[in-house]
Structures are given as C-alpha cells and as structure tokens.
Design a binder for these strands. Structure first.
Lengths: 222, 222
DNA sequence: GGGTATAAGTATGCATACAAGAAATTTTAA
DNA sequence: TTAAAATTTCTTGTATGCATACTTATACCC
C-alpha cells in the first residue's frame, strides 16, 4: 500500500486510513485489529500503527483493552441511540448559532449544497446522496462560527457516518430529509434561531419509527 | 515519583498524572512538554510518555506539532468562550433528560450534593466549593441516563475545570451559582424539562461570558 | 467425559536503538 | 558588525528487541 507524502507523520496517515476502512465497512465492528497484521499490511513497524490505534481509541472508534489488543468498537443499539441524542443537540446548537451568525456567502453555499442534494440522480443513489448530505451538514456546522463546536460536530458526525449511510436506505428517508433541510434553511434565513435549533434537532434524533427503521436496517448488532 | 499499581498500563497512569498537573496549573498553557524530560521525571522510557501525550492531544489538552514537540494547549479567550458555549449545551441536554429520567435515589443524591455546597465553610473556600460543585454537576450528568453524553460532559468539564476554579474567585459568583443550582433542581423536581434545560444552559454560559471578560481584562492570554 | 490445571505459544507493553528533521551555533563573507 | 550559510546538536518519529500477561491447547484428575 502506498502512502501519501503530505503527512509528516506516518501515524497520522495510518489513522486516517484505518478510520476510512472502518467507515467504509472494510473493518467491521468487533473485528480485532492486530498490530503486527496491520503493520505488515501497511509496510511499517508496529509503532506508528500503535499510535494510530491510540488516537482512534480516544475518539471512540476503536477500543483498546489492556493486554488484549484493539478491536473496532462494537456498537450496541443503546449507545447508538445515545450518540444520536448528543449529535442532535450539537446540530441544534449549530443551527441556532448559524441563524444568528451566518454570512451571506455561507448561506449561499448552504443553499447550493442543498440544491445539489435535490438533483434527481443524487436522490436516487443513497451513496451519492450521502456525500452531498454530508457537505450540507458540514456547511451548517461552519456557519455556527464556533470552531470548537465545528470540530466536535464533525468528529461525531464522522463516527456516526456509517449508520447515517444505512439510514438513507430506508424508503422515503431521503425525501423527508430533503424537506427537513429546506425547513432548516428557511428558519435560518428568517433568523429564527429557536426554530432552526428545534428543526435541526428533530432532523437528527431518531425516535420511535425512525429508530426501529435504523435498527432494522442494521440488524448487524447483536 | 512513585506509580500506582492499579493501572495495567503505564501510559494510562502517566496520562492521568499529566492531566492532573495541567489541571492544577503545575504545567501551564503553552509550556513545552519534553518527552525525555518527562520520561526521566517519571522514571520511564519515552514510549509510554508519548502514548500518554497522544491521548491527551486528542482530548485537546495537549497540542502535538509534527516534529516540533508537544505543548500544553494555549487557550485564547475566543476558544475558551466557544468551549463554554458547547459545555452549556451539553449541560442543558443533561438537565433536560434528567428532568424526565431522574430516579428518586439520584434526585436525593443531587439534593444532597447541593446542600453540601451550601455549608458555610464550603461557601467561604473556593477550593472546597470547587470540588462540591463538581460533584453536583457530575450527579446531574449521570441523571441524564445517557452514558455517551455523561462521558462527553465529564470530559469537557475536566478540560474547563481550571477555568471554573478561577471563576469561583469572582466576588458573588458562588452565591449566584448556588441560587442557579437550586432553580435547576426545582425545575427537575417539577419535571419541567424545558425549564431545566434553559436554566442549566444559562448557568454555564454566564460563566463563559464572565470568564472571557475576566481573562480579557487580565490579558493573561495573548 | 467433563472440567480444571498446567504449559506452550502469541501479542501486547515498554525499553532501547537508529534515522531524520528542526533548532542552535559557529563560521565565513560582505 | 551583521547577515547568510553550513555544520552541529538536539528532539522527534520509527524500528526492533525483550519481558510479561493473556490465550490456547493438551494433559491429568475427578
């Protein structure tokens, strides 16, 4: 496997790579991450692999059990729900702040990403939609003008990405997602921070039906 | 320096130690953390020190600049305010959930910690108050019954701890803090989740605002 | 035969060694 | 004397080796 030169630290590069493999499902939850295996696979020594794993363990993507090796963090439904609950709140805060602080340029960009989500061929392809949708959300985060929040939101978003991806396969979810985006944008344009906040929260939170849909689409977890 | 046996990994122990030194101000923001120095100080090799630093860098307490070593993350007032803004939201969520989910036992414990905060000798000693106050807040987090949220809240709380500590030295802050706690408890008892949420948010955000002002006037940070 | 105990094997955690990139210092030139 | 260049020094980043805890497999006992 080749390595990009732009990383001054191998461990940084490896972290991103492993992260990617987990996000795309190449490394599945519960899977053991053997240091020596990985080292050989990437053609490096154990040290940078270890450092990458340590970093990933503090974001929660992998779990390091003392003397028992690292595994991709298994997600039970309870924790998943909890994570969405927190994500909803972060998004709500982003939306609330965005409604007050967004610049014209940022608003334009937000609308642009939303419009791109609505293109027919994107709507019909969950994978494409996933990427466009991600752009929309990150644009929303940035409009909050709170760098710390942006960082946290992007982090958690990343961690939930594979599940969001699955969510989009639920029939009709993309359509309602689009509608919700539209309402959020409207609230932001009106400068109604409370409404924007409420809508963003509801857009993310997976309650009732939505949660069982998510679980059904998963049935990966125990 | 001695090491506790209860840690199966040295790096875990070192992480906590360094964290502690930063929280208590022994290691000050901007200070360089030389790996060899630390290794000698703790009587270990560079490896576990490095691993500890990597972990701390992903919580944000330490900054690792490629090839240029680690420093205790310097905090400017802007970032500090941003962190309080996010903390406020997490506390608000905790309070909202607590209002709906708190058990009798948890409520008793929350009230107990609050009453202990009100003891005369505690009120008069900012350091003592700091610890009791922390107990109160953590009790609130736990009452949310969302383990992921609890973890996140405790993490950020820790990171802001040294600032909260200073904050309590501002005249009259302890008294108003107590009053705010009381109102939050009342709202939780009533089961008024929206009110509890609002009060908790304001309780924290005020600290952020005041504190940024305080810092700015002290111009400690650049 | 099932369960425990013991021993071999394997992977982690830490130490040490080496390589390479910054920073510091010295030397040289204008 | 100052500035620039080159060399040295020092620190980080990576590799490798070794000891120990955990896993497993086999044997022994009930």
């Amino acid at each position: 496997m080749k390595k990009k030169a732009k990383h001054s630290k191998l461990s940084e590069y490896l972290k991103e790579k492993i992260e990617e493999f987990i996000a795309t499902g190449l490394f599945t939850p519960g899977m053991k991450l053997d240091e020596i295996d990985l080292a050989q696979k990437f053609g490096v020594s154990r040290t940078p692999i270890r450092e990458a794993l340590i970093q990933l363990s503090s974001t929660g993507l992998v779990e390091m059990r003392p003397r028992r090796g690292a595994i991709v963090t298994p997600i039970d439904t309870k924790k998943l729900y909890e994570m969405f609950e927190v994500m909803a709140e972060l998004e709500a805060l982003c939306a609330r702040l965005a409604a007050r602080r967004i610049t014209n340029k940022e608003l334009e960009y937000l609308q642009k990403t939303h419009l791109e989500c609505k293109v027919k061929e994107i709507i019909e392809n969950p994978d494409l939609y996933y990427y466009k949708n991600e752009e929309f959300h990150i644009a929303l985060y940035r409009a909050s003008h709170n760098d710390f929040l942006i960082e946290q939101a992007i982090n958690l978003h990343k961690r939930l990405s594979s599940f969001r991806r699955l969510q989009l396969r639920v029939r009709g979810r993309i359509e309602s997602s689009l509608k919700e985006h539209e309402e959020i944008i409207e609230a932001i344009i009106k400068g109604d921070s409370e409404l924007a906040s409420k809508l963003a929260r509801e857009h993310i939170i997976v309650q009732g039906e939505r949660f069982s849909d998510l679980l059904a689409s998963l049935n990966i977890s125990q």
